[in-house]
Design a binder for these strands. Structure first.
Lengths: 122, 122
DNA sequence: CTCTATGCAAAAACTTTGCAGGGAT
DNA sequence: ATCCCTGCAAAGTTTTTGCATAGAG
């Protein structure tokens, strides 16, 4: 998906900083936290956090806290679940279809916590 | 479930502080964060956090971060999903059976993020 | 005795806010 | 001119750690 399409109909201007943030997440196959990308960003952390919050408000990005206590972000298209291992903190994307529905609720993100197969076999 | 049973076979002593923490969670029908219970506790916050971490390590308690950025804890029996509204931060327990399985993974907790029915109707 | 638990204070980790300057329309 | 965006520094929030004391077996 191209960046322009992501902000289409959204209530925000596509500034240089915002484009840079969205490029990174758009090109990533997995959720990323600020630490993961801070060295690739040429903006202040305040700018990153202000903008990622705005993206969340507009429904462009969703986030979750992982086992390492850091907040991970991801473009909110192609919804899928995430498995977080509470032993080794691994994050796995679970692409399988989720037949999970809750009446009158809009589901954006599913986080499953538990023990991954690696840790189970130790 | 009684407190003794919760710590059965676990690697920890049932001190007064630990019993007080477990009593509160055991008697609650919903997840609670430190703020929710700090006035009911007669121990230092360090003691609370050290012990709740231990409970998590032993698999007695699980936790998740809610939309208010606080960590919520719950006794890990009777597994069920939680719905967190990213607009109003409401936490709903979803008691319905989860047919969600991931091969070779142990699932302890499912967190579903999205918009609750109240916020959808506004 | 030895080992673990606790309280207190300080620190750490991550995120947010205030404010002044800049850019775009 | 107005409005929003940005950088910098400082503050905020929640959780963790160091250390000395207390308590249990």
């Amino acid at each position: 998906m191209n960046i322009e399409k992501l902000v289409d109909n959204k209530n925000l201007k596509l500034t240089t900083a915002r484009r840079a943030i969205l490029e990174i997440f758009n090109n990533s196959s997995k959720p990323l936290c600020y630490d993961d990308i801070k060295n690739s960003l040429s903006m202040d952390k305040a700018t990153f956090y202000r903008n990622i919050t705005k993206f969340e408000e507009e429904g462009i990005v969703n986030s979750f806290e992982s086992n390492d206590k850091k907040r991970y972000y991801e473009i909110q298209n192609n919804p899928h679940a995430h498995f977080i291992c509470t032993k080794c903190s691994a994050i796995e994307c679970i692409p399988e279809k989720m037949d999970f529905k809750i009446p009158n609720h809009k589901i954006d993100n599913i986080i499953i916590k538990g023990i991954c197969s690696n840790c189970l076999n130790k």
